[in-house]
């Protein structure tokens, strides 16, 4: 099971808490998925925050607060500080966004915010791209986890750049790696695990499915399958056929 900053979590599935049809369905989806971590956010208190806090405490799994929506280093750092106090955890899913159409991380600001937060004792989970230089800079800044995107948040497009994600895995074999965002189908999640990633973080694919509870279960099974497959050392793909049935001993009939 994945280990993040010395803490082993019980499942490689990290599940978001947003966009579900109801709080009851959200809780049921978490039970069905047996997710190891729940991601949460901070928003202006308009009356709903206290009930939500009780709901996530009832899930009884570690929470990972995010800095979703932040567009600057200052915003992200202040949000992280508030999250640490509110949720009582040094974990922070660090998001700093520049482009609102793709929600692509602003990797320059991300590295700067990560450095400030790591120096302040935070354990940073940066939502990043699959760029090796950016990933290296984040590790230099003090990150021990990297979370490259599969595809833009909420797009459900799967792994846009399996080659890039495989490169990150190969370059940083000892770093905990999470594919964060872009997962639409269980097969996408399985593919991430087959690449050797430690975990998958998803939200929309479950919450916006017609049956979120069933999809949560499907994701859990796919992630387990991908994890087993990676550990089983899959065969290499090849261009030409290679018969699996023995040719030796075949009757001469024609």
């Amino acid at each position: 099971m994945p280990v993040f900053y010395g803490t082993e979590v019980e499942s490689p599935l990290m599940l978001g808490t947003a966009l579900y049809p109801s709080p009851a369905i959200m809780a049921e989806a978490f039970r069905a998925s047996r997710a190891g971590i729940a991601t949460v956010s901070l928003r202006r208190e308009g009356g709903a925050g206290q009930d939500f806090h009780a709901l996530i405490k009832g899930l009884n799994i570690p929470v990972l607060p995010n800095t979703a929506g932040c567009h600057s280093v200052r915003e992200a750092v202040t949000t992280a500080q508030m999250a640490r106090e509110l949720f009582g955890t040094p974990w922070i899913k660090l998001e700093v966004i520049r482009d609102d159409d793709t929600l692509c991380p602003d990797v320059i600001a991300l590295v700067e915010a990560a450095r400030i937060l790591a120096e302040d004792g935070f354990q940073v989970f940066p939502y990043c791209t699959e760029d090796l230089s950016v990933c290296g800079r984040l590790l230099d800044a003090g990150c021990e986890v990297l979370m490259p995107w599969g595809a833009p948040i909420g797009s459900g497009r799967g792994l846009n750049n399996p080659y890039g994600l495989r490169s990150v895995r190969a370059h940083f074999p000892e770093v905990a790696l999470v594919v964060d965002a872009g997962i639409g189908l269980p097969s996408h999640a399985a593919q991430a695990m087959e690449l050797g990633y430690d975990a998958v973080l998803l939200n929309t694919a479950v919450a916006k499915a017609g049956d979120p509870v069933a999809m949560a279960r499907a994701m859990a099974l796919a992630i387990e399958a991908g994890q087993l497959a990676h550990a089983a050392n899959p065969i290499e793909a090849r261009d030409m056929a290679a018969p699996s049935t023995p040719l030796f001993g075949m009757a001469v009939l024609g």
Binding site: A18, R44, E45, F52, A68
Partner: peptide
Amino acid sequence: LEVVAPMQGG
């Protein structure tokens, strides 16, 4: 003054 509370997030 900003006052924030736990909320749903991905």
